[in-house]
Amino acid sequence: MKIHSMMSVAAVALASASAGFAAEDSSEPIVIPIHNWSSQIVMSHVVGQIYEEMGNNVEFVTTDSQAVYESVRLGDVTLELEVWEGAFGASFREALEKGGLHDAGDHDAVTREDWWCPMWTKDACPGLPDWKALNDCAELFATPETGDKGLFLDGPVDWLKHGKERAEALDLNYVVKNAGSAAALWAHIASAEEDKTPILVFNWTPNFAEAVWPGEFVEFPAWEDGCDTDPAVGPNPDALYDCGNPADGYLKKAAWDGMEEKWPNAYEVLTKISFTNAQIAEMAKLVDVEDYEPEEAAEIWLEDNEDVWKGWLPGGDT
């Protein structure tokens, strides 16, 4: 591995020399945030290792995935590699308005976050994934605590998923409960797995769970712009949140406004970076299924996908 890295450093050095860059990157470390899901961690290390091979100093900080935009805005953190439309769109836009960070382009990958059920649930409720089947199956999803209403386990409150509002807006006979963490969601799915208990939980893609528990998103009325701001949009004229989340949400990169000036080369690479759903799933799998440490997973991925990332390097596409 070491020899390999040295070789690529040499290659990069050669490449940059031939391209004859005028601007030099600052030697201060580029601060890359790390959150608490695997694909993001591996992706951060992949990009970090690319930067290191370019000769930059890189530092990783683990941060909260919502609070990070404030940090990027202030320059405490240099960039953010996974801006999910559904989960972080609001925080991202808020920070964007305050100023200090900007959109550094989309990944190829699309994201989706919505109500979800594992495959085994379909046996009990064949009407799924159409949302109209939900009320008929409500009792299947009931627990001792919810009586005859069904239980939908939503993401943590700080993800701002508006499950309760949607249940009300679409008149669903469900109790919406917030899990406290992603881990709580997984534990809930895992404990239902053995007995194939029907469950309805919040889930998203890409993540490791799809490899472990195959399942389907519930098909709600399709997302229309304004569904979250204008009651008239969507099937229920009096309510907000009466449609599903966007089925092809963006996955963006964001950068601190000062990055371009301070690390021009690294910035250029950042704007070119683009991962696909398959690549992201592979990164997650290396850690979550194959038990590699994120750093190792990043090295392996880089090794296996040289043709992908070499093209992003300065002068690489010339």
Binding site: N36, W37, I41, V61, T63, A182, A183, W186, A190, D288
Partner: peptide, 19 residues
């Protein structure tokens, strides 16, 4: 770990988040 400190706590949280 809840505010993003690395180390044992951070790893623990990450491990738990992938069950």
């Amino acid at each position: 770990a809840f505010i993003g400190m690395p180390g044992l706590g951070g790893k623990l949280l990450a491990m738990m988040n992938s069950l």
